[in-house]
Simulated assay, not measured.
Amino acid sequence: MHLFSAVPRGVLTLLFASLLLSLADAHSYFIVTSPTQGTQLQNGAANRITWIKGLLDDIDAFDVEMSRLSVDGLILVARDVPAGSGSFNLFLQDVPSADDYYLLFLNSTSGVMFTTSSRFSIGDSSSNATATEPDSSAPTVTISGGPNPLNDFATTFPPSANGVAMPGWKAIEGSKGQLIGLFTAMMLCMAGGAFTLL
């Protein structure tokens, strides 16, 4: 009697498929760690923005936009932020005070949203709230005023990659995860075929 003979084939198929999906998505996460829920960023101060993300998700750079829940329009913060840097400082000048702001981390060219921050507030420079400690080694982006459709991104970082595909074996090396997933799927299909014949 075989180990899997008592389990219906459909259940085994679903089990193996879910295993493959969990392996494929194990590296795809993107979390904004600051600002968090309840954080108050200060006008007239550099506020630290931080994130962590998966290493194998093929996101080399992203754009950052700021929006409010109660007001239409976006404040374009930074374009082509290097994903691996993990932080930048956001210096606010005369940004309207409110408690319904959030940051969008996305590819604004294709419209793909990677993640959003938790809801946070922006206070006056005279308020008693403590500003987040800026990172002296990170770049600083300065934004001023509210949403304006005529404004461009406040800062554009230099390109992190030139967009040219890697030739030869380096291209294969860069897509190891995809090759491993394809090989695993083929092996599981062959194992399923063997179980069907047995």
Results as ranks from 00 to 15, higher is better:
residue 134 P to E: 01
residue 94 D to K: 06
residue 3 L to I: 15
residue 34 S to R: 07
residue 10 G to R: 10
residue 165 A to C: 07
residue 105 F to N: 04
residue 37 Q to R: 07
residue 17 A to M: 14
residue 98 A to D: 06
residue 117 S to E: 08
residue 192 G to F: 12
residue 5 S to M: 11
residue 72 D to W: 13
residue 33 T to C: 03
residue 185 A to H: 06
residue 98 A to K: 05
residue 117 S to P: 05
residue 197 L to N: 08
residue 136 S to P: 13
residue 90 L to K: 00
residue 97 S to Q: 08
residue 76 L to R: 10
residue 100 D to Y: 05
residue 112 V to C: 08
residue 112 V to S: 12
residue 137 S to T: 15
residue 162 N to Y: 03
residue 138 A to N: 03
residue 8 P to K: 12
residue 50 T to G: 02
residue 38 G to C: 06
residue 174 G to I: 09
residue 43 N to F: 03
residue 156 T to A: 15
residue 50 T to I: 05
residue 55 L to P: 06
residue 12 L to D: 05
residue 65 E to Q: 15
residue 122 I to M: 01
residue 15 L to N: 10
residue 179 L to W: 10
residue 182 L to S: 09
residue 47 N to V: 02
residue 127 S to N: 13
residue 23 L to D: 04
residue 128 N to C: 04
residue 107 N to I: 10
residue 45 A to W: 05
residue 108 S to C: 15
residue 179 L to M: 13
residue 104 L to P: 04
residue 168 G to T: 06
residue 45 A to P: 00
residue 23 L to P: 03
residue 169 W to H: 02
residue 69 L to T: 14
residue 165 A to Y: 01
residue 42 Q to N: 09
residue 133 E to R: 08
residue 30 F to G: 02
residue 154 A to G: 09
residue 183 F to P: 01
residue 16 F to Q: 04
residue 113 M to G: 12
residue 108 S to T: 15
residue 25 D to I: 14
residue 54 G to N: 05
residue 6 A to M: 13
residue 41 L to S: 04
residue 96 P to I: 13
residue 170 K to T: 10
residue 193 G to V: 14
residue 142 T to G: 09
residue 103 L to P: 00
residue 83 A to W: 00
residue 117 S to M: 06
residue 121 S to W: 01
residue 120 F to Q: 02
residue 43 N to A: 13
residue 90 L to S: 00
residue 51 W to G: 00
residue 105 F to L: 13
residue 143 I to K: 00
residue 194 A to K: 12
residue 52 I to E: 09
residue 123 G to Y: 03
residue 25 D to C: 13
residue 33 T to I: 08
residue 116 T to C: 05
residue 73 G to A: 10
residue 13 T to Y: 14
residue 93 Q to H: 04
residue 164 V to M: 02
residue 142 T to D: 11
residue 22 S to W: 09
residue 140 T to F: 07
residue 169 W to N: 11
residue 129 A to D: 09
residue 84 G to F: 07
residue 27 H to W: 11
residue 152 D to M: 06
residue 162 N to F: 05
residue 93 Q to A: 05
residue 48 R to Y: 00
residue 159 P to I: 00
residue 54 G to C: 04
residue 129 A to H: 07
residue 9 R to G: 03
residue 183 F to A: 14
residue 137 S to Q: 14
residue 94 D to H: 08
residue 131 A to S: 07
residue 49 I to G: 00
residue 116 T to G: 08
residue 154 A to N: 06
residue 75 I to Q: 04
residue 17 A to G: 08
residue 27 H to L: 09
residue 81 V to S: 01
residue 75 I to M: 11
residue 91 F to N: 05
residue 161 A to D: 07
residue 162 N to R: 08
residue 191 A to P: 12
residue 53 K to M: 13
residue 178 Q to L: 11
residue 8 P to T: 12
residue 157 F to V: 07
residue 160 S to V: 15
residue 145 G to C: 06
residue 59 I to E: 00
residue 177 G to V: 01
residue 71 V to T: 08
residue 156 T to Q: 15
residue 188 L to Q: 02
residue 181 G to C: 08
residue 155 T to H: 04
residue 68 R to K: 13
residue 113 M to A: 14
residue 100 D to K: 00
residue 80 D to Q: 06
residue 42 Q to A: 11
residue 140 T to M: 09
residue 159 P to F: 03
residue 112 V to M: 13
residue 143 I to W: 01
residue 14 L to D: 14
residue 127 S to Q: 10
residue 60 D to P: 02
